[in-house]
Design a binder for these strands. Structure first.
Lengths: 140, 140
DNA sequence: CCTTTATGTAACAGCTCTCGTTCCGATTTG
DNA sequence: CAAATCGGAACGAGAGCTGTTACATAAAGG
Protein backbone atom coordinates (compact mmCIF):
# COMPACT_ATOMS: atom_id res chain seq x y z
CA UNK A 1 0.00 0.00 0.00
CA UNK A 2 1.07 3.53 -0.51
CA UNK A 3 1.74 4.53 3.08
CA UNK A 4 -0.71 6.98 4.60
CA UNK A 5 1.07 10.29 4.99
CA UNK A 6 -1.92 12.50 5.73
CA UNK A 7 -0.92 13.05 9.33
CA UNK A 8 2.58 14.13 8.33
CA UNK A 9 1.17 16.55 5.77
CA UNK A 10 -1.38 17.86 8.27
CA UNK A 11 1.31 18.67 10.82
CA UNK A 12 3.42 20.25 8.08
CA UNK A 13 0.54 22.41 6.85
CA UNK A 14 -0.50 23.46 10.35
CA UNK A 15 3.08 24.33 11.27
CA UNK A 16 3.37 26.51 8.16
CA UNK A 17 0.19 28.38 9.03
CA UNK A 18 1.32 28.76 12.64
CA UNK A 19 4.54 30.43 11.55
CA UNK A 20 2.95 32.76 9.00
CA UNK A 21 1.21 35.98 9.83
CA UNK A 22 -0.87 36.14 6.68
CA UNK A 23 -3.41 33.86 5.12
CA UNK A 24 -1.74 31.46 2.68
CA UNK A 25 -3.01 29.76 -0.49
CA UNK A 26 -3.00 26.02 -1.08
CA UNK A 27 -0.56 26.56 -3.93
CA UNK A 28 1.92 28.35 -1.65
CA UNK A 29 1.61 25.57 0.95
CA UNK A 30 2.02 22.91 -1.73
CA UNK A 31 5.34 24.51 -2.61
CA UNK A 32 6.74 23.66 0.81
CA UNK A 33 5.12 20.24 1.09
CA UNK A 34 6.23 19.44 -2.46
CA UNK A 35 2.92 18.09 -3.70
CA UNK A 36 -0.18 19.10 -5.63
CA UNK A 37 -2.39 21.95 -4.34
CA UNK A 38 -5.42 19.67 -4.44
CA UNK A 39 -3.75 17.31 -1.98
CA UNK A 40 -3.21 20.26 0.34
CA UNK A 41 -6.82 21.36 -0.06
CA UNK A 42 -8.01 17.89 0.90
CA UNK A 43 -6.04 18.13 4.14
CA UNK A 44 -7.21 21.70 4.74
CA UNK A 45 -10.79 20.62 4.18
CA UNK A 46 -10.47 17.97 6.89
CA UNK A 47 -8.83 20.44 9.26
CA UNK A 48 -11.58 22.97 8.59
CA UNK A 49 -14.28 20.40 9.38
CA UNK A 50 -12.51 19.81 12.70
CA UNK A 51 -12.53 23.56 13.41
CA UNK A 52 -8.76 23.89 13.27
CA UNK A 53 -8.37 26.16 10.23
CA UNK A 54 -10.49 28.70 8.39
CA UNK A 55 -10.41 29.00 4.61
CA UNK A 56 -11.79 31.74 2.37
CA UNK A 57 -12.30 31.72 -1.39
CA UNK A 58 -11.71 34.28 -4.08
CA UNK A 59 -8.96 36.81 -4.62
CA UNK A 60 -6.88 37.20 -1.46
CA UNK A 61 -8.31 33.88 -0.34
CA UNK A 62 -6.41 31.23 1.58
CA UNK A 63 -6.24 29.55 4.98
CA UNK A 64 -5.31 30.49 8.53
CA UNK A 65 -5.39 28.74 11.87
CA UNK A 66 -8.71 28.95 13.68
CA UNK A 67 -7.08 28.70 17.11
CA UNK A 68 -3.75 29.68 18.62
CA UNK A 69 -0.95 27.09 18.16
CA UNK A 70 -0.87 26.55 21.93
CA UNK A 71 -4.44 25.24 21.78
CA UNK A 72 -3.96 22.76 18.94
CA UNK A 73 -2.45 19.37 19.83
CA UNK A 74 -1.06 16.74 17.49
CA UNK A 75 -3.93 14.55 18.62
CA UNK A 76 -6.36 17.13 17.23
CA UNK A 77 -4.56 16.97 13.89
CA UNK A 78 -4.40 13.19 13.95
CA UNK A 79 -8.10 12.77 14.59
CA UNK A 80 -8.94 15.33 11.94
CA UNK A 81 -7.21 13.53 9.06
CA UNK A 82 -7.05 9.84 9.98
CA UNK A 83 -10.11 7.65 9.97
CA UNK A 84 -10.98 6.44 13.43
CA UNK A 85 -8.80 3.40 13.18
CA UNK A 86 -10.83 0.46 14.32
CA UNK A 87 -8.29 -1.97 15.70
CA UNK A 88 -7.22 -4.18 12.81
CA UNK A 89 -9.20 -7.36 13.33
CA UNK A 90 -9.79 -10.41 11.18
CA UNK A 91 -11.15 -9.87 7.67
CA UNK A 92 -13.45 -12.84 7.95
CA UNK A 93 -15.12 -13.46 11.31
CA UNK A 94 -13.41 -16.38 13.11
CA UNK A 95 -15.14 -19.70 13.54
CA UNK A 96 -17.82 -19.23 16.24
CA UNK A 97 -17.83 -22.97 16.93
CA UNK A 98 -14.32 -22.68 18.41
CA UNK A 99 -13.99 -21.29 21.95
CA UNK A 100 -10.97 -19.24 20.91
CA UNK A 101 -12.50 -18.03 17.65
CA UNK A 102 -15.69 -17.05 19.46
CA UNK A 103 -13.99 -14.75 21.98
CA UNK A 104 -10.64 -13.68 20.55
CA UNK A 105 -11.93 -10.48 18.99
CA UNK A 106 -13.39 -9.00 22.15
CA UNK A 107 -10.13 -9.72 23.97
CA UNK A 108 -8.16 -8.13 21.14
CA UNK A 109 -10.31 -5.03 21.04
CA UNK A 110 -9.77 -4.44 24.73
CA UNK A 111 -5.98 -4.57 24.43
CA UNK A 112 -5.77 -2.59 21.21
CA UNK A 113 -7.97 0.15 22.66
CA UNK A 114 -5.60 0.50 25.59
CA UNK A 115 -2.57 0.59 23.28
CA UNK A 116 -4.17 3.17 21.01
CA UNK A 117 -5.12 5.29 24.01
CA UNK A 118 -1.50 5.29 25.18
CA UNK A 119 -0.35 6.47 21.76
CA UNK A 120 -2.96 9.21 21.65
CA UNK A 121 -1.99 10.35 25.14
CA UNK A 122 1.50 11.11 23.85
CA UNK A 123 0.16 13.00 20.84
CA UNK A 124 -2.08 15.01 23.15
CA UNK A 125 0.92 16.29 25.13
CA UNK A 126 2.51 17.97 22.10
CA UNK A 127 1.02 21.21 20.79
CA UNK A 128 1.52 22.93 17.50
CA UNK A 129 3.43 25.59 19.43
CA UNK A 130 5.87 22.90 20.58
CA UNK A 131 6.38 21.90 16.96
CA UNK A 132 7.07 25.43 15.74
CA UNK A 133 9.42 25.89 18.70
CA UNK A 134 11.38 22.83 17.67
CA UNK A 135 11.41 24.02 14.08
CA UNK A 136 12.78 27.44 15.08
CA UNK A 137 15.42 25.76 17.24
CA UNK A 138 16.46 23.50 14.36
CA UNK A 139 16.62 26.42 11.94
CA UNK A 140 18.87 28.29 14.30
CA UNK B 1 -6.55 -0.71 1.85
CA UNK B 2 -7.30 -4.21 2.83
CA UNK B 3 -6.58 -3.65 6.48
CA UNK B 4 -3.59 -5.45 7.89
CA UNK B 5 -4.90 -8.20 10.13
CA UNK B 6 -1.67 -10.13 10.60
CA UNK B 7 -1.37 -9.14 14.24
CA UNK B 8 -4.90 -10.28 15.00
CA UNK B 9 -4.26 -13.61 13.29
CA UNK B 10 -0.93 -13.99 15.06
CA UNK B 11 -2.54 -13.54 18.48
CA UNK B 12 -5.31 -15.92 17.48
CA UNK B 13 -2.87 -18.59 16.31
CA UNK B 14 -0.63 -18.21 19.35
CA UNK B 15 -3.60 -18.42 21.70
CA UNK B 16 -4.76 -21.61 20.01
CA UNK B 17 -1.34 -23.20 20.40
CA UNK B 18 -1.15 -22.03 24.01
CA UNK B 19 -4.41 -23.79 24.85
CA UNK B 20 -3.61 -27.04 23.06
CA UNK B 21 -1.46 -29.77 24.43
CA UNK B 22 -0.54 -31.29 21.11
CA UNK B 23 1.13 -30.00 18.00
CA UNK B 24 -1.45 -28.66 15.55
CA UNK B 25 -1.46 -28.43 11.75
CA UNK B 26 -1.96 -25.25 9.76
CA UNK B 27 -5.17 -26.73 8.39
CA UNK B 28 -6.58 -27.28 11.87
CA UNK B 29 -5.63 -23.75 12.88
CA UNK B 30 -7.13 -22.33 9.69
CA UNK B 31 -10.42 -23.90 10.68
CA UNK B 32 -10.64 -21.69 13.76
CA UNK B 33 -9.28 -18.56 12.10
CA UNK B 34 -11.58 -19.15 9.13
CA UNK B 35 -9.02 -18.61 6.40
CA UNK B 36 -6.67 -20.53 4.08
CA UNK B 37 -3.95 -22.76 5.57
CA UNK B 38 -1.30 -20.92 3.55
CA UNK B 39 -2.23 -17.69 5.30
CA UNK B 40 -1.73 -19.43 8.63
CA UNK B 41 1.60 -20.84 7.50
CA UNK B 42 2.79 -17.38 6.53
CA UNK B 43 2.07 -16.17 10.06
CA UNK B 44 3.63 -19.29 11.59
CA UNK B 45 6.72 -18.76 9.46
CA UNK B 46 7.14 -15.23 10.83
CA UNK B 47 6.59 -16.45 14.38
CA UNK B 48 9.14 -19.23 13.88
CA UNK B 49 11.75 -16.73 12.63
CA UNK B 50 11.15 -14.75 15.82
CA UNK B 51 11.70 -17.90 17.89
CA UNK B 52 8.14 -18.01 19.20
CA UNK B 53 6.93 -21.28 17.64
CA UNK B 54 8.50 -24.46 16.33
CA UNK B 55 7.14 -26.24 13.25
CA UNK B 56 7.91 -29.72 11.95
CA UNK B 57 7.10 -31.21 8.56
CA UNK B 58 5.84 -34.57 7.49
CA UNK B 59 3.36 -36.97 8.98
CA UNK B 60 2.48 -35.93 12.53
CA UNK B 61 3.91 -32.51 11.68
CA UNK B 62 2.53 -29.21 12.94
CA UNK B 63 3.41 -26.31 15.21
CA UNK B 64 3.80 -25.71 18.94
CA UNK B 65 4.87 -22.77 21.05
CA UNK B 66 8.61 -22.47 21.56
CA UNK B 67 8.22 -20.77 24.96
CA UNK B 68 5.68 -20.85 27.75
CA UNK B 69 2.71 -18.46 27.31
CA UNK B 70 3.87 -16.47 30.32
CA UNK B 71 7.07 -15.57 28.47
CA UNK B 72 5.45 -14.39 25.21
CA UNK B 73 4.09 -10.85 25.15
CA UNK B 74 1.80 -9.28 22.59
CA UNK B 75 4.71 -7.00 21.71
CA UNK B 76 6.71 -10.10 20.73
CA UNK B 77 3.88 -11.15 18.41
CA UNK B 78 3.45 -7.65 17.03
CA UNK B 79 7.10 -7.26 16.15
CA UNK B 80 7.19 -10.72 14.62
CA UNK B 81 4.47 -10.10 12.05
CA UNK B 82 4.36 -6.35 11.42
CA UNK B 83 7.04 -4.57 9.48
CA UNK B 84 8.99 -2.17 11.61
CA UNK B 85 6.59 0.66 10.97
CA UNK B 86 8.65 3.64 10.07
CA UNK B 87 6.53 6.59 11.14
CA UNK B 88 4.40 7.53 8.15
CA UNK B 89 6.22 10.49 6.66
CA UNK B 90 5.86 12.38 3.39
CA UNK B 91 5.99 10.36 0.17
CA UNK B 92 8.03 13.02 -1.58
CA UNK B 93 10.67 14.83 0.49
CA UNK B 94 9.47 18.32 1.44
CA UNK B 95 11.02 21.40 -0.10
CA UNK B 96 14.47 21.84 1.49
CA UNK B 97 14.45 25.52 0.58
CA UNK B 98 11.70 26.12 3.15
CA UNK B 99 12.69 26.28 6.83
CA UNK B 100 9.65 24.23 7.77
CA UNK B 101 10.07 21.72 4.96
CA UNK B 102 13.73 21.30 5.82
CA UNK B 103 13.14 20.31 9.45
CA UNK B 104 9.60 19.01 9.79
CA UNK B 105 10.49 15.37 9.30
CA UNK B 106 13.04 15.17 12.10
CA UNK B 107 10.56 16.80 14.46
CA UNK B 108 7.86 14.37 13.35
CA UNK B 109 10.07 11.33 13.79
CA UNK B 110 10.84 12.31 17.34
CA UNK B 111 7.18 12.60 18.31
CA UNK B 112 6.05 9.50 16.45
CA UNK B 113 8.78 7.44 18.03
CA UNK B 114 7.58 8.47 21.46
CA UNK B 115 3.97 7.68 20.56
CA UNK B 116 4.88 4.29 19.13
CA UNK B 117 6.94 3.49 22.22
CA UNK B 118 3.94 4.22 24.42
CA UNK B 119 1.81 1.86 22.38
CA UNK B 120 4.42 -0.88 22.50
CA UNK B 121 4.77 -0.46 26.25
CA UNK B 122 1.11 -1.41 26.63
CA UNK B 123 1.49 -4.44 24.37
CA UNK B 124 4.52 -5.52 26.40
CA UNK B 125 2.47 -5.69 29.60
CA UNK B 126 0.10 -8.32 28.22
CA UNK B 127 1.30 -11.91 27.88
CA UNK B 128 -0.16 -14.77 25.93
CA UNK B 129 -1.10 -16.29 29.29
CA UNK B 130 -3.19 -13.21 30.02
CA UNK B 131 -4.98 -13.70 26.70
CA UNK B 132 -5.76 -17.35 27.30
CA UNK B 133 -6.92 -16.46 30.82
CA UNK B 134 -9.35 -13.91 29.39
CA UNK B 135 -10.51 -16.45 26.81
CA UNK B 136 -11.19 -19.07 29.48
CA UNK B 137 -13.05 -16.51 31.57
CA UNK B 138 -15.20 -15.54 28.57
CA UNK B 139 -15.91 -19.15 27.66
CA UNK B 140 -16.69 -20.47 31.10
C1' DC C 1 12.12 -47.29 -1.95
C1' DC C 2 7.59 -45.55 -2.04
C1' DT C 3 3.50 -43.52 -0.24
C1' DT C 4 1.40 -40.35 2.70
C1' DT C 5 1.12 -36.15 5.07
C1' DA C 6 2.57 -31.77 6.22
C1' DT C 7 5.38 -27.53 5.93
C1' DG C 8 7.80 -23.73 3.01
C1' DT C 9 7.28 -20.62 -0.39
C1' DA C 10 6.75 -18.70 -4.99
C1' DA C 11 3.42 -16.80 -8.13
C1' DC C 12 -0.77 -14.70 -9.33
C1' DA C 13 -5.35 -12.34 -9.26
C1' DG C 14 -8.64 -9.41 -6.91
C1' DC C 15 -9.52 -6.05 -3.68
C1' DT C 16 -8.88 -1.67 -1.26
C1' DC C 17 -6.52 2.51 -0.14
C1' DT C 18 -3.66 6.52 -1.25
C1' DC C 19 -1.91 9.94 -4.05
C1' DG C 20 -1.37 12.90 -7.89
C1' DT C 21 -3.74 14.92 -11.60
C1' DT C 22 -7.34 17.12 -14.48
C1' DC C 23 -11.47 19.42 -14.67
C1' DC C 24 -15.29 22.28 -13.54
C1' DG C 25 -18.47 24.85 -10.51
C1' DA C 26 -18.85 28.26 -6.71
C1' DT C 27 -17.27 32.30 -4.39
C1' DT C 28 -14.94 36.63 -3.49
C1' DT C 29 -12.83 40.99 -4.89
C1' DG C 30 -12.35 44.75 -7.86
C1' DC D 1 -17.60 40.87 -16.05
C1' DA D 2 -12.73 39.19 -15.13
C1' DA D 3 -9.38 37.18 -12.15
C1' DA D 4 -8.11 34.34 -8.40
C1' DT D 5 -9.03 30.90 -5.23
C1' DC D 6 -11.34 27.21 -2.86
C1' DG D 7 -14.41 22.84 -3.04
C1' DG D 8 -14.74 18.67 -4.68
C1' DA D 9 -15.80 15.03 -8.23
C1' DA D 10 -13.57 11.71 -11.22
C1' DC D 11 -9.92 9.01 -12.89
C1' DG D 12 -5.54 6.27 -13.33
C1' DA D 13 -1.26 4.54 -11.40
C1' DG D 14 0.88 2.25 -7.83
C1' DA D 15 1.34 -0.39 -3.62
C1' DG D 16 0.07 -3.61 0.03
C1' DC D 17 -2.81 -7.49 1.81
C1' DT D 18 -5.35 -11.63 1.36
C1' DG D 19 -6.70 -15.81 -0.58
C1' DT D 20 -5.66 -19.36 -3.83
C1' DT D 21 -3.07 -22.69 -6.67
C1' DA D 22 0.98 -25.14 -7.44
C1' DC D 23 5.07 -27.39 -6.46
C1' DA D 24 9.35 -28.60 -3.99
C1' DT D 25 10.98 -30.41 0.49
C1' DA D 26 10.91 -33.17 4.48
C1' DA D 27 9.45 -36.68 7.91
C1' DA D 28 7.33 -41.22 9.20
C1' DG D 29 6.02 -45.87 8.29
C1' DG D 30 5.57 -50.01 5.72
Amino acid sequence: MARNCRFAVAVHVAALLAMEEQSRTSEWIAGSVNTNPVVVRRILSALAKAGLVISTRGINGGSTLAKSPERITLLDLHRAVDEEETPALHNQPPNPACPVGRNIQSVLVRVMDRAEAAKEAVLATTTLADVTGALRAATG
